[in-house]
C-alpha cells in the first residue's frame, strides 16, 4: 500500500483533481454563503437574459435567475445523481461479479449473459426509453442510471475473483470449512476493493455526463429543479442571443468530470503499477 500511496502522490494532477472535487462539493454544499442570489428568484421585469456582469458574474436566464447561483445549486443535483447512481451501479456490479466469479456454474452463465445483453445496448437509447416511457424524476433517474451502469464493474470484479479464488489463502479458508459468504465478504471483497474504487470514481464522472445528456433531451430532472444538464438544455433554445446560459453549466460539467477522471486514473495507476503510463 505504501508504494501505492507514493505513486498516487506522485500523480500531482490526480491530487489536484481530488482537491478540486472537494472544493466543488463544498461550494455546492455551502452555496448560500457564496452567492447573494436565490437560485429560484425570478426577475421578470428587466432582469431576463442579462449578459455576465459584476452583479451576475455568469449572467441571468430567461426568468432572470442568476446563472452562477444556479450552477452552484445545480451542482448539488448533478453530483448527488452521480454519487448515488454510481454507488448503486458499483454495488450491483461488485455483487454480480463476485457471485459469478466465486460460484461459477449456471449462475455465472446467466449473469454474464445479462451483462452481454446490456453491454450490447447503446446505453443512452435504453435510458431514453426507460425514462421517457415512465415519468422522469430524481429517484427514477438514479435507479435507472444505476441499473444500466453496473456491467463494467461486474466484469472487472469477476475477473479479479476468478484469479483470487484459486489463491492459497482462499483455498485454505475453504478447507477450514468457512461458509461462502464469509469468504466472499471477509477475504475476497477486500482484495478487489482497489479496482472497485477506481471503477466507482470513473463511474461518477461518466454518470454525470450521461445524466447531462438525458437532461439535454429534456428527460432529466424536471423544473424548477435544475441540474447542469437541464441548464444546458434551457440554454440551447437561447444559444444565439444568450450564449452564457448553455456555456457555463457545460464548463461546470467539463471541469467536474475531468476531475473525477483524473482522480480515477491516478488511483488506477496507484493500485496497478502495470498501468503506469
Amino acid at each position: 500500500m505504501s508504494r501505492a500511496t507514493v505513486n498516487f502522490a506522485h500523480s500531482r494532477l490526480a491530487a489536484a483533481g481530488g482537491i478540486a472535487i472537494l472544493l466543488l462539493v463544498l461550494a455546492s454544499l455551502f452555496a448560500p454563503l457564496l452567492t447573494p442570489h436565490d437560485p429560484d428568484r425570478q426577475h421578470l421585469d428587466g432582469g431576463i437574459y442579462l449578459p455576465p456582469s459584476v452583479d451576475h458574474p455568469l449572467g441571468t436566464d430567461k426568468f432572470g435567475r442568476d446563472i452562477f447561483s444556479r450552477i452552484l445549486y445545480g451542482g448539488r443535483v448533478s453530483l448527488a445523481i452521480g454519487f448515488f447512481a454510481a454507488a448503486m451501479s458499483v454495488t450491483l456490479g461488485t455483487l454480480a461479479g463476485a457471485t459469478a466469479g466465486y460460484f461459477r456454474g449456471v449462475g455465472e452463465g446467466v449473469i454474464m449473459r445479462v451483462v452481454d445483453v446490456l453491454l450490447a445496448f447503446p446505453r443512452l437509447i435504453l435510458l431514453l426509453a426507460l425514462v421517457a416511457l415512465f415519468h422522469p424524476s430524481l429517484v427514477l433517474l438514479v435507479v435507472v442510471l444505476g441499473l444500466t451502469g453496473w456491467m463494467g464493474t461486474a466484469r472487472i470484479v469477476r475477473g479479479e475473483v476468478l484469479s483470487l479464488r484459486e489463491r492459497e489463502f482462499i483455498l485454505a479458508g475453504r478447507a477450514l470449512g468457512f461458509r461462502a459468504p464469509r469468504i466472499l465478504f471477509r477475504h475476497i471483497l477486500p482484495n478487489v476493493l482497489g479496482p472497485v474504487i477506481v471503477a466507482a470514481t470513473l463511474s461518477i464522472g461518466n454518470t454525470i455526463l450521461i445524466e447531462a445528456s438525458l437532461s439535454f433531451l429534456g428527460l432529466g430532472v424536471q423544473p424548477p429543479m435544475a441540474s447542469w444538464g437541464s441548464m444546458i438544455n434551457d440554454g440551447k433554445e437561447a444559444l444565439t442571443h444568450a450564449w452564457w446560459i448553455a456555456t457555463f453549466p457545460g464548463l461546470a460539467v467539463l471541469v467536474t468530470v475531468s476531475c473525477f477522471n483524473l482522480v480515477g486514473d491516478g488511483m488506477r495507476d496507484a493500485f496497478d503499477p502495470r498501468f503506469e503510463p
Binding site: 447531462a212 439535454f216 444538464g229 456555456t247 457545460g250 460539467v253 467539463l254 475531468s258 477522471n261
Partner: peptide, 10 residues
C-alpha cells in the same frame, strides 16, 4: 470528459 452535445452546441 467533455459533454459531447455541449461541444456540438459550441
Amino acid at each position: 470528459s467533455m459533454p459531447g452535445f455541449w461541444f456540438g452546441l459550441m
